[in-house]
Amino acid sequence: MAAMQGAGAYAKVGVESGVMSASSHQLIVMLFDGARTAMRAARIHMNEGHVAEKGASISKALDIVNNGLLAALDGERGGEVAGNLASLYEYIARRLLAANARNDVEALDEAERLLDDIASAWRDIEPQVAGT
């Protein structure tokens, strides 16, 4: 038990160190990764009938989408692109809510696919952001 707590603390320090040294672009990539991990966990819990755990995982994904990705948008500087992303993030959030309420794997799959598409595009611009 103590070893597990120690490993958890070590992992938390590693994540915190990564966040502290990450660029804003890398932080957004971390948010996408976290949302994907939460959605995959939700799918496993959904398939195994673990209702509380499924809800917690979907809540984590929703929090990342709403309070991370959506909140990070800059409507002034991002213009129409930021507006379109905001609409897409709001749609993804609705699909996550539907997945949770109805144990709808298809809604969860759609939310994950859409988020993966955005994440892929975001990763493609990384070399341009880094100046390479």
Results as ranks from 00 to 15, higher is better:
residue 47 N to F: 07
residue 57 S to N: 10
residue 79 G to I: 11
residue 47 N to Q: 14
residue 6 G to D: 13
residue 61 A to I: 08
residue 38 A to P: 02
residue 65 V to E: 02
residue 11 A to E: 12
residue 62 L to D: 01
residue 31 L to V: 01
residue 46 M to W: 01
residue 50 H to V: 01
residue 40 R to D: 03
residue 28 I to L: 13
residue 70 L to Y: 13
residue 22 A to S: 09
residue 26 Q to W: 07
residue 29 V to E: 15
residue 17 S to V: 12
residue 15 V to T: 15
residue 41 A to C: 06
residue 67 N to W: 01
residue 13 V to P: 07
residue 30 M to N: 10
residue 30 M to F: 15
residue 80 E to I: 15
residue 13 V to G: 05
residue 63 D to K: 04
residue 37 T to W: 08
residue 18 G to W: 15
residue 76 E to F: 09
residue 57 S to A: 14
residue 39 M to Q: 01
residue 16 E to L: 12
residue 55 G to C: 05
residue 8 G to E: 11
residue 41 A to T: 12
residue 11 A to G: 05
residue 11 A to D: 10
residue 15 V to P: 07
residue 82 A to H: 07
residue 8 G to T: 12
residue 7 A to S: 14
residue 61 A to V: 05
residue 76 E to C: 11
residue 75 G to A: 08
residue 52 A to F: 08
residue 40 R to T: 06
residue 24 S to H: 08
residue 72 A to T: 09
residue 65 V to S: 03
residue 12 K to E: 13
residue 9 A to R: 15
residue 8 G to L: 13
residue 7 A to P: 07
residue 73 L to A: 00
residue 2 A to M: 09
residue 74 D to M: 04
residue 38 A to S: 10
residue 36 R to S: 04
residue 82 A to Q: 08
residue 31 L to H: 05
residue 60 K to D: 01
residue 30 M to H: 09
residue 15 V to Y: 14
